[in-house]
């Protein structure tokens, strides 16, 4: 593969394998020292610091970005927590207000109902008393009418006046049934 097409004068030698020709060592060592020295200089002064710097800057940047993201996430978490806290407070307030209102309304309607019931009960009992009074009065009237009617019926049928005490006793017995 690596055919030596470079033109120039061949290094004078006595033949043999090129890599073992001691007379070429001096030149190779000198130029290797210069070439490798140059490479080492470039490497230690320019290449390694530059690429190392790039990589460091990148990892620093990534770390900084991650830290920033972390702090933003923490902020967002705090905001969420405070939002949830105020939401819970508001909900508790609303429930308290609702309970209070409900209690107030319940109390008002209860007392109203009680007074109404009392009034109704009073009306009912007074009405019942009136009815009983009227009933007694009506019953009294029924008796005197029945007594009069009995007197009239007896007088017409028998043609004689009936004994008042007996008529009253008969009417009372009939009314009892």
């Amino acid at each position: 593969m690596a055919t030596n097409t470079t033109t120039g004068t061949q290094v004078p030698s006595k033949g043999g394998f090129p890599a073992f020709k001691v007379e070429t060592f001096g030149s190779q060592l000198l130029w290797l020292a210069i070439a490798f020295g140059l490479l080492y200089y470039l490497m230690s002064r320019h290449i390694a610091p530059r690429i190392g710097g790039i990589l460091e800057e990148r990892s620093g940047r990534i770390a900084a970005d991650l830290a920033a993201a972390q702090s933003m996430k923490a902020e967002a978490d705090a905001a969420t927590a405070s939002y949830e806290k105020s939401l819970a407070e508001a909900r508790a307030n609303a429930q308290a207000i609702a309970a209070e209102t409900r209690a107030k309304i319940n109390g008002a309607s209860d007392s109203e109902r009680k007074s109404l019931e009392a009034k109704l009960a009073a009306d009912l009992s007074s009405s019942e008393a009136k009815i009983a009074e009227a009933r007694t009065a009506a019953m009294g009237n029924v008796r005197s009418i029945a007594v009069d009617a009995t007197h009239a019926i007896v007088e017409r049928l028998a043609g004689a006046k009936a004994e008042a005490a007996r008529v009253e006793a008969a009417v009372d017995a009939a009314l009892k049934h």
Partner: peptide, 26 residues
């Protein structure tokens, strides 16, 4: 074996020793 031969591009001698710039150096 010829591919391994050193060829002087710029001959250089210091104190009789050969330090020429060769294809290897290039």
């Amino acid at each position: 074996i010829k591919q391994f031969e050193l060829v002087h591009l710029v001959p250089l001698k210091i104190g009789g020793a050969d330090f020429g710039f060769t294809n290897s150096a290039l």
